[in-house]
Design a protein around this nucleic acid. Structure first.
Length: 489
RNA sequence: GGCCCCAUCGUUCAACCGGUUAGGACAGCGGCCUUUCACGCCGUAAACAGGGGUUCGAAUCCCCUUGGGGUCACCA
């Protein structure tokens, strides 16, 4: 153990919406660092060139700021250990990978993806444990250098010990042992010269002086690789603390996922949850303040926090309790502050300006505006109506429509730019692939998204509602349909 | 499937190093307040997964079983 000043970090991967799990882990890193007068850093792990999304990084930073979990060092504020974006540190990882190669702690692997696929297929068929067979581990150095010089593509793999146990001490669980025999020679540097998570993460944590790695439980199985990496470099390893995983509320109890639960921080913000309430609620997941106190501020949590007060069962994210807690916060605001908050969310001029052109030609009196635009503000829609029935057109089944909504939820999530053109293209595409008529898709989607059959133009409306709320409504409509009694024959 | 982690009411969090009528909160139910609803208040139901040990005594320590989860990529 060393007496280095405490430094923690949150290291999200910008591959989608800002995730509630990211906020959850960030919270504990933040609180622990602040409690010890240390620093909390933000590092963007964007080494996956195929998945990193441009706008995602920005959304993550905005969401964490919204929650009040601000960082002392990061891509936007800089700091002594920058850059804080892994894609800007590529050469560093390459250099370190080659350093391990030189020291015999790692080796070049020339195996092709197709060979590795075959290997896996064979292992699966033969029912043997999967993993790299270490074919290239014993290539002699001359041959390795020669093939690399000839331009043959390769990756660099870490040499794991063949015998013995890897021992990690987890701050919450104590000692966790694993036999090296079941540990693979992990790829450190991909053939595109970008690092894998394992290399980049360890190199950065060391270079950035991270003392406590507080991350989700799902990382426990790969910690031996990280420990080995620290050993291979001759570096002092941080303390490992693995927090329990947030779970889905349904029967599966699997780790929280966007297919089953709203996981986007944007959702909670647009739903009207106050950041203080969300932070408080997240803190309740696994942590107990003491004396049965449930409502507390970030500041108070910093005063009371200890990992001894963290329990290990995977907590289920209970939206109902979050909403109750939020109500508590709402009620203690001054009416003025509440008005400001309500206005800032949806009842603001900028938002009105987007809606006005959509409803103008349908208005006869000024007050028509309220009725015509209500669905732009409502959160939950009521589908138990005459219009709601239009979500299942004649000749289509309930399940067909639910499946359609499900597909749209996914497609909208993956949409690069969420705009009118892409929405129209998407709806036309799903209509065509099904061989349906447009009315079989457009009206049901209209009702799902707005709750009614007479609305402003569909794509424009979806665009104004935004990606997140559109998805939520489609998902709610899907759930509504699947809960319907089966039609009589 | 192998390996690893976990195990208290439906959900969440308590019960310090073994001795409690197993507690709080959300949700549920009943009631009070109230023109209504909500808030608030009062009350009620609801759990130690099972089996072995250790011990005078086990929710608490150990083992096994069961259950749940995670992980086994040139993703993080």
């Amino acid at each position: 153990m060393s007496d280095r000043p405490v430094r923690t970090r949150i290291a999200p991967s910008p591959t989608g919406d800002p995730h509630v799990g990211t906020a959850y882990i960030a919270l504990f890193n933040y609180v622990f660092a602040k409690q010890h007068g240390g620093q909390f850093l933000l590092r963007i792990e964007d080494t996956d060139q195929t998945r990193a999304r441009r706008d995602s990084e920005k959304a993550i930073m905005e969401s964490l700021h919204w929650l009040g979990l601000s960082w002392d060092e990061g891509p936007d504020v800089g700091g002594p250990c920058g850059p804080y974006r892994q894609s800007e540190r590529r050469e560093l990882y390459e250099k370190h990978a080659f350093e391990l190669l030189e020291r015999g702690e790692a080796y070049r692997c020339f195996c092709t993806p197709s060979r590795l696929n075959e290997l896996r297929a064979y292992q699966k068929a033969a029912n043997t444990p999967p993993g790299y067979d270490r074919l290239c581990r014993n290539l002699d150095r001359e041959e390795s250098d020669r093939r690399a010089a000839a331009g043959e593509p390769f990756v660099i793999r870490l040499k794991m010990p063949l015998e013995g146990d890897s021992v990690m001490v987890d701050g919450l669980r104590g000692e966790i042992r694993r036999s090296y025999r079941e540990l693979d020679d992990q790829v450190l540097l991909k053939s595109d010269r970008f690092p894998t998570y394992h290399l980049a993460n360890v190199v950065d944590d060391h270079l950035m002086g991270i003392t406590h790695v507080i991350r989700a439980e799902e990382w426990i199985p790969s910690t031996p690789k990280h420990i080995r990496l620290y050993e291979a470099f001759g570096w002092e390893a941080p303390q490992w603390i693995h927090m329990p995983l947030l779970r889905n509320p349904d029967k599966t109890r699997s780790k929280i996922s966007k297919r089953k639960n709203p996981v986007s921080l944007l959702f909670y913000k647009e739903y009207g949850v106050l950041p203080e309430a969300l932070v408080n609620f997240l803190a309740l997941m696994g942590f107990s303040f003491g004396n049965d106190v449930e409502k507390f501020t970030l500041e108070e949590m910093i005063g009371a926090f200890s990992f001894e007060k963290v329990s290990l069962g995977g907590p289920v994210f209970d939206l109902e309790k979050l909403v109750w807690l939020n109500g508590l916060y709402l009620r203690e605001m001054s009416p003025q502050a509440l008005l400001d908050a309500v206005q800032a969310l949806w009842l603001n001029r900028a938002y009105f300006e987007r809606i006005m052109p959509l409803v103008q030609e349908r208005m006869r009196t000024l007050t028509d505006f309220v009725d015509l635009s209500a669905f732009f503000y409502n959160c939950a829609l009521d589908y138990h109506t005459e219009d709601g029935k239009l979500m299942v057109p004649k000749g289509r089944t309930i399940e067909e429509m639910a499946a359609l909504f499900e597909e749209l939820v996914e497609a909208i999530d993956g949409m690069e730019d969420y705009n009118v053109e892409n929405l129209e293209a998407l709806l036309r595409r799903v209509t065509e692939t099904r061989g349906w008529k447009t009315k079989d898709v457009f009206m049901p989607v209209r009702v799902a998204v707005t709750g009614r059959k007479a609305t402003p133009p569909l794509f424009e409306s979806m665009s104004v509602l935004g990606r997140e709320r559109t998805r939520v409504r489609l998902r709610q409509a899907m759930a509504h349909l699947r809960a319907l009694p089966p039609p009589q024959a």
